[in-house]
Design a protein around this nucleic acid. Sequence first.
DNA 1: CGGTATCCAGGATGATACTG
DNA 2: CAGTATCATCCTGGATACCG
Lengths: 125, 125
Amino acid sequence: MNLDKKKQKKPDQCKVVVALDSIVGKWKPLIIQHLLIDGTLRFNELRRRIPDITQRMLTLHLRELEEQDLVERVVYPQVPPKVEYSMTEYGKTLEPVMDVMHEWGAAHVEHMKEIDEQNKKLSQN
Amino acid sequence: MNLDKKKQKKPDQCKVVVALDSIVGKWKPLIIQHLLIDGTLRFNELRRRIPDITQRMLTLHLRELEEQDLVERVVYPQVPPKVEYSMTEYGKTLEPVMDVMHEWGAAHVEHMKEIDEQNKKLSQN
DNA sequence: CGGTATCCAGGATGATACTG
DNA sequence: CAGTATCATCCTGGATACCG
């Protein structure tokens, strides 16, 4: 999606930015997680697992993941069409990354809760 | 920064999304990394380390990181003003996360290079 | 020095309709 | 079923000017 423009002036000496680029997008992390968990999913199966995503965004994000060799797309030439998506072997190297983020995210939710409660107590005095 | 609207319809049952939310933003990863490396930096020191960032974005991102208890802001009441930023103890828990992403990012750059070269060879035939 | 306020452009996402 | 095309909207970030 506009890969030329993406190369412009980006602070991508930092590899974290590179990694984020592959993962970021409103629905990308969810797509990745479902494919990591379920292995292989058809287009509409993915769609059902991510209720609020639009057809358009699912298509766009899948295409980007494909371009990065993270997701594989297999088309069965039949009517009605059948298209299956799965993580590539390479794409599966993302799993540890997702795990680390998932754990940190869970801890962060807890941490923010504690902070909130502390603030409430303080404001009561 | 419009926290109300941020709560809208977001797929944040997924903790990865929570984590990403703290890290994402055009310059946030860079700010975090510099603070992790250098420990404490003044506003303009940070600015110099991230040449293309605008004053506005540096301020906005720092405020967001502060709200999440990731970054600490210390103001020295003097003229001219002096403000120091550093990661909170809690914020430092991001370090392993950043490391994992950094490593994956570096590997990804290499992987994409290989793919490109393969494609070039194929298109020559 | 370390900000804030305003305005604006472009990209990312959403809504909807149509198709092989 | 699995898309594409088009148009509308929203949001992020950039440019610029000003302030204590």
